[in-house]
């Protein structure tokens, strides 16, 4: 058995608001293994980004994080002090955000921004840093790296800005890269290039990744395993190909069915009635999807389903598989 690089067990996150405490994430349990890409998929407001922010400890002050275990390479993350955190962020674990324009500093040249990571984490000389920065820029596919070194973020296109953000995330050779919708804001052709770049990084640097997306096409293309999140819960987990072929949870099934493509022309698209409940409207202790589910029965409104193993790593949290007959159609 391989040892995971990141382990999260029973993580709960709640927010302290004026009118009480609200649970945003419940019983989040998952692991990331070396050289593995784990996808997190779900609608907006399901807690995808929140999960990764809780791991990195970058949540706002009114968030309360509880957990049984949260370890990165056998080091418990939550016991770290701010100083130790600074050692880890950027060097061991790095993050790439959705909007490259708001992630980059508009007043600093891109070369400096990429090199800054090395300045903070290593004792390289100025020349060495510049040399490595330019090497990295070439590696992520930025053309004319020497020239671009001195340019500002606004002078670059969206795709190139995202490459700069990726270069920043990669230059210190991290073991875990967290990418939060890194291709959502890009054109399809650029998206294909960036995904190819991520694959190359995975193969060459042997890094692990957590890849957040709401696009099943992206998930299918880059991820080994996927977590499906709904209203703060992981409702299904398993190998990407397995889940796409054989989704078990009614939510996963609905999500996949609502993707438009040319084969569905002329047909009504499948839709999920209702919307993701807001933090205040969530029901505690019952299946979070029950109100929108067409297969829901008595048990769904009474208790929270247990995690049921389907086969191998494929697990699902749904009463249909513990108390019911399963999902047939």
């Amino acid at each position: 058995m391989r040892t995971p690089i990141l382990t999260v067990e029973n993580m709960n996150v709640s927010f302290e608001l004026v009118n009480g405490n609200y649970k945003a994430l419940e019983n989040i349990t998952f692991s990331v293994y070396p050289n593995e890409v784990v996808g997190i998929v779900g609608e907006s407001g399901c807690g995808k980004s929140l999960t990764t922010q809780a791991i990195l400890g970058i949540l706002p002050k009114n968030a309360i994080v509880e957990y049984e275990k949260m370890e990165y390479k056998q080091v418990s993350l939550r016991e770290l002090r701010d100083k130790d955190w600074r050692e880890i962020r950027g060097k061991d674990i790095s993050m790439i955000f959705q909007e490259p324009m708001s992630a980059l500093n508009p007043l600093i040249t891109v070369g400096k921004q990429i090199g800054e990571v090395l300045k903070v984490h290593t004792s390289y000389s100025k020349d060495e840093i510049k040399k490595r920065t330019i090497e990295m820029m070439k590696k992520v596919g930025l053309p004319r790296a020497e020239e671009l070194y001195k340019s500002y973020p606004h002078q670059l296109s969206g795709g190139m800005q995202q490459r700069v953000a990726i270069a920043i995330a990669l230059i210190a050779d991290p073991d875990l890269i967290i990418a939060d919708e890194p291709t959502t804001a890009l054109d399809v052709t650029i998206q294909a290039q960036i995904l190819a770049l991520f694959k190359k990084i995975k193969n060459e640097q042997k890094s692990s990744m957590i890849f957040i997306s709401h696009d099943w096409g992206v998930i299918r293309n880059i991820c080994d395993r996927v977590l499906v999140m709904y209203a703060g819960h992981i409702v299904e987990e398993g190998a990407v190909s397995e889940i796409l072929k054989n989704p078990k949870h009614p939510y996963t099934k609905s999500l996949i069915q609502s993707i438009p493509d040319h084969r569905k022309r002329g047909m009504e698209l499948f839709t999920i009635p209702g919307k993701v409940p807001s933090l205040q409207d969530r029901k505690i202790g019952v299946c979070p999807f029950a109100d929108r589910c067409s297969h829901c029965f008595d048990a769904c409104h009474i208790e929270m389903p247990m995690t049921k193993e389907i086969e191998g790593t494929h697990t699902v949290k749904c009463h249909l598989y513990t108390k019911g007959a399963g999902l047939t159609s």
């Binding site: 609608e43 907006s44 709401h214 696009d215 099943w216 999500l255 609502s258 993707i259 839709t271």
Partner: peptide, 8 residues
């Protein structure tokens, strides 16, 4: 929009 909302 999210795919589920997009479909609607």
């Amino acid at each position: 929009l999210d795919v589920s909302v997009q479909a609607q």
